[in-house]
Amino acid sequence: MKRTAAHKGTVLIVEDSQTLRQMTQMTLEERGYTVLTASDGVGALQALAETIPDIVVLDINLPDIDGFEVCKRIKADPRTRYVPVIMATGLGRSGFEIMSIESGADDFIAKPIDPLVLDARIEMVIRRMRRERFANALTGLPSNALTEERLGFLLARRKPFAVIFFDIDGFRAFNSRYGHARGDLLIRHLAELLLEAVNFAEPDDAFIGHLGGDDFIVTCDPDKAEGIAHSVVASFDGSILDFYEDEDRESGGFTLTDRSGEPKRYGPLTLCAAVVPVVERFPGSVIELMDQGHDLLEYAKQQPGSFVATERRGIGLG
């Protein structure tokens, strides 16, 4: 009986040579990986739009977009920024390594590729990135540890930025009504709305974090923050009823029995956002910044419907 290797992760192989692509795919599948493939740069970016792999093995010499440019685009997209990339090429080693690093690659390997070396490199990079990334398992976005690290970096840099806090009001009741599976679909949908809004606004050095449950954070340029917040809220309001059954959609909500046995009516879910610009004075800690955002978010949740609240003064201790 053939023994099946334990699943070690999902790898996207981007290689224009069909022979090399198939050989690498077969080798990695034998070692327990799920393998996706693309023969050019456009195909690689399309594959990443559909599925977020654990790692990308990227050839440099592609027929349309060279591997360095593909890597730059992967790292520029908030959705794929934390997917590790191993560059593979037969170019001269020193120049290849420099260009790989400049494009944002996490590691590199020279051709011809030794399957055992590639397997070891993939394991090493995935292990390192998982340890550093602390990604949310549901959305693939950075979770608490990396988000706090990001906020700490922005505070230490002492340059203007903004933080947008997002929270779905009534999400617990929605889960009680429809179950966690549909709740998970809704959370992933909100993550996609955030990614779309951020990509459309094209802010410099944007970051999207998933703190858990229905709580998300975006950091971006101060002048782009309100536009992103309003865009996400409008998209959420325009699509939320798609997650309801016809009966609830037609009646505008549903009724649940509370702990005291009394019926309670719940309308369609709403999304609240709190925009906290940090432009003149800087808070003394990440905790203080988070507290300011959560206080403003609570104010937003007290308003009727979906709401975007903005701290106009900036914040900090001076």
Score class of each variant (00 low, 15 high):
124 M>G: 08
90 G>K: 07
103 S>L: 06
85 V>P: 07
113 I>T: 06
141 L>H: 13
129 M>A: 03
180 H>D: 05
90 G>C: 06
185 L>P: 00
166 F>A: 13
185 L>V: 01
112 P>A: 14
130 R>G: 13
112 P>D: 09
166 F>R: 15
110 A>G: 11
163 V>S: 15
137 A>N: 05
110 A>V: 14
87 M>N: 12
143 S>C: 05
104 G>E: 04
89 T>M: 01
144 N>S: 10
100 S>F: 04
180 H>W: 06
172 R>H: 12
146 L>S: 13
116 L>C: 06
161 F>L: 13
169 D>C: 12
98 I>T: 05
127 R>C: 13
87 M>C: 14
90 G>M: 06
143 S>N: 09
182 R>Q: 11
169 D>W: 07
90 G>N: 10
110 A>M: 14
133 R>N: 15
172 R>F: 13
183 G>M: 07
132 E>G: 03
116 L>R: 14
116 L>E: 11
133 R>W: 15
150 R>W: 02
185 L>G: 02
132 E>R: 00
171 F>C: 05
143 S>P: 04
136 N>F: 02
163 V>R: 13
119 D>C: 01
167 D>E: 13
188 R>Q: 15
103 S>T: 09
148 E>R: 00
134 F>C: 03
112 P>V: 10
84 P>V: 03
95 G>K: 14
155 L>H: 09
117 V>T: 15
97 E>G: 01
129 M>G: 02
135 A>W: 07
104 G>C: 07
144 N>P: 02
170 G>V: 07
165 F>K: 09
149 E>A: 12
189 H>R: 15
165 F>W: 14
179 G>H: 05
99 M>W: 02
145 A>R: 11
112 P>R: 14
116 L>F: 09
115 P>C: 08
189 H>Q: 08
109 I>V: 15
164 I>A: 11
137 A>V: 05
107 D>C: 02
175 N>F: 10
142 P>C: 08
151 L>S: 13
145 A>M: 02
113 I>Q: 14
108 F>H: 14
176 S>C: 10
103 S>F: 06
86 I>K: 07
164 I>T: 07
121 R>W: 08
176 S>V: 04
154 L>V: 05
163 V>E: 12
166 F>T: 09
91 L>H: 07
140 G>C: 02
102 E>N: 06
122 I>F: 09
94 S>P: 05
141 L>Y: 08
120 A>M: 00
89 T>W: 03
182 R>K: 11
131 R>A: 11
88 A>Q: 13
128 R>E: 10
185 L>H: 02
